[in-house]
Design a protein around this nucleic acid. Structure first.
Lengths: 344, 344
DNA sequence: ATTAGCAGATAATACGTATTAGCGCTTGGG
DNA sequence: CCCAAGCGCTAATACGTATTATCTGCTAAT
């Protein structure tokens, strides 16, 4: 059953009484200088193709043309596990949409349980014409090789140079963070704190940079350069410094902190405003809506895909694009009530 | 920059002072009868490969070997739009997981905005070694061609014969539905109704079959063979027939019906039990938890992927597999309160 | 009548790899 | 001394398509 050899152009040619080359010419309708096919012959060949349902083998096609109209999507982490689903899904949606409208298909190369490498033994990635790279973790050695090599790619998320500029589409976190700081100040906050890492991934650094640029030394009263710490411990640090507004990089930290605060009878935002730097979760989630900024994940993915196609098709130069992150009103940032000090 | 010609085996061969064939032999470590490579030569070649970072072009590889360790995932509908996301995501997760552990990558061929065809002009599907087909809508003409052809595929969801048996992994809806009917009966329900289509897609037919087999003619007091009808209209039909328990195929119908009932002061499940045939939405959703049965989407997808790989690798015969659907307790099925008739 | 030109088609080749048949050389046995 | 066998490697080929160069008639121009 499966041994039925696949139909080739040679077979079509035989059936139509022409040569393989003619079949190819009919298919690729080359009305170029030479090699015109008269209507009669063309129709004869087309009829056979229709009758047999022949389609050109894309592998052989890529072999000679070099292009495939396939884009790879590489992630170091698995793309669909429950935990990550909400993180990757918007990106995949955006990529799919853009790829679709540009006439490309997607080859998914999702992070193995093991350590997946771009440059492994079995790199099927090269089958694609180029690739979009997703994920927070990034192997810098591989990134450098990508930059040095000739395989078109675009990263989603800003990346520092790696032996050369990295083409990317990212979120413009620094100004978005600065804007939130300004907003907190305009509410009257003068005792501001920061909870989260301040080094490591580019996105982390950008947030810290945007924060520290806007806050001014005098107003920064406490910093906890860590994530996932026990909320009460963190709260102690903040409160003893007289913090009225805290900026948190991780939503999960903000959530437990808000709960801990409530448990202590500290009102949010009355006694303590909490600002989260980026919406890390679906908006419809029940419960508190944190003041934050929107990460335009779909738009980022779309833009990255379009950029990639530009690189693939026209060998376009490296571009670096940061998309605006809209502030999210939320209900955890407000004016500091003067009670804060007086009550205590 | 991108014009740096890709490294080929010929280049490696030249650098190592051997022939292209030797390089290939070193790579594919063929310890077969003939063509042994002595350690010294092998190491020389391997060194060059390491130094240059050469990797074999998977396209050329597929060209000659025929296999690519790539599985296609075909959907007639777009896979990631917000609406469909919850439907497709569990399937994709299961497929990804299985493919991952079997060493395959995924080629996503998701429904275009337009009508996507398996047998189109630009069928890049053949790049994959086989494919999993997802989605409710199915073009039967194409299915028949797939069955007749030699391209390995497996459908997710039961499919009727299409000029031959269709390989599939589905949910075993009929017995799952029957079990819920039995459960309703054991609660004492004797006036049962059905709201939903009873013909069309296989999954629909299975539900109706499982229902009608278990319910018995005497107990079926009302049927609305439609979906998406105004809930009050439907409720009128049900109540005037003295229904105490209704089986609904569409969750959305059940939701509006429950709201309409509540608005009328009809308690669920006190006055009216509602059973949904299949969990069409994420479990964490807030609100009422309908009595239903679980569709093991991830397991189905995994099983389908494994089945596909069996077909691809060992040319395994057509299999058809229905997975058990566990009943979901929920809180919308209970004993009919005698009030139902007396109050009215 | 010779040739230039052109339409209609095909032979030949390239793409990069895997694989088989086979070549030249050494060695051991008779 | 000759043959068989084995070793180490390579030339040749196949995979299916796109493309270019080339071939074959034929017509029209000189």
């Amino acid at each position: 059953m499966a041994a039925v050899k696949r139909l080739t152009q040679k077979d079509i040619a035989q059936l139509a009484g022409v040569s393989q080359a003619t079949v190819s010419l009919v298919l690729n309708g080359a009305p170029s200088s030479q090699a015109r096919i008269p209507q009669e012959t063309r129709e004869r060949v087309e009829k056979v193709i229709r009758d047999t349902g022949y389609v050109a083998d894309p592998v052989a096609r890529k072999m000679v043309k070099g292009l495939n109209r396939i884009l790879g999507v590489f992630t170091y982490e698995p793309a669909f596990p429950s935990g990550q689903a909400d993180f990757f899904t918007p990106f995949l949606f955006g990529i799919e949409e853009a790829a679709q409208s540009l006439g490309y298909d997607l080859l998914l190369l999702t992070g193995a349980g093991k350590q997946r490498k771009i440059f492994g033994d079995n790199v099927r990635l090269r089958l694609a014409d180029g690739c979009v790279i997703l994920g927070r973790k990034f192997d810098n050695t591989e990134l450098a090789r990508l930059v040095a090599g000739d395989f078109p790619f675009v990263a989603v998320g800003r990346r520092d140079d790696a032996g050369g500029p990295v083409p990317y589409v990212g979120g413009d976190y620094a100004p978005a963070t600065s804007a939130l700081v300004e907003r907190a100040k305009s509410f009257g906050h003068r005792r501001i704190a920061y909870v989260g890492l301040n080094e490591g991934a580019e996105s982390t650094v950008d947030r810290w940079y945007g924060f520290s640029r806007a806050v001014g030394e005098a107003d920064l009263v406490a910093s906890v350069f860590a994530v996932g710490r026990p909320p009460n411990e963190t709260l102690d640090v903040l409160l003893s410094a007289g913090t009225t507004c805290v900026f948190v990089t991780e939503l999960s930290d903000a959530m437990v902190m808000e709960q801990a605060a409530r448990a202590r009878g500290i009102s949010v935002p009355g006694d303590l405003s909490i600002v989260v730097l980026g919406n890390h979760i679906r908006a419809e989630e029940p419960g508190r809506r944190f003041t934050s900024f929107a990460i335009p994940r779909e738009a980022m993915a779309r833009a990255a895909t379009e950029m990639l196609v530009r690189r693939v098709e026209h060998d376009a130069p490296v571009e670096q694009l940061l998309l605006h992150c809209e502030p999210l009103e939320g209900d955890t940032l407000g004016a500091p009530s003067s009670k804060t000090k007086k009550t205590k």
